[in-house]
Amino acid sequence: MTIREVVKLLDAEILCGEEHLDTEIHTACGSDMMSDVLAYVKDQSVLLTGLLNPQVVRTAEMMDMLCIVFVRGKRPEQPVIDLAEEKGIVLLSTEKRLFVACGILYTHGLGG
């Protein structure tokens, strides 16, 4: 699916990266431990998380991920959004909880 479909499915707000919404994605992961993302994630292109600090964007950048979804209606501070913008990473914010957001994407065909 495209990132645009993720936006629709999660009823998400786009915080930055509007120009990359048609990028195709195939896999995602959900975690509040960046350590685990760095250690266990392979080629996932979307990160769903409840954490908001800049190292979330750093971690995604190091792993060549394309999109971060902040769950439970959270929004990071502007410097974090600016960093993602600079890296070409799409930031989304959804009201849904981590488990639910992951479940919706999984049900609609996104792999783990």
Partner: peptide, 14 residues
């Protein structure tokens, strides 16, 4: 540190 998403003890092995 753990609340910031780090400190799983996987850094050096990684």
């Amino acid at each position: 540190i753990r609340s910031l998403g780090f400190g799983a003890g996987m850094g050096l092995p990684n």
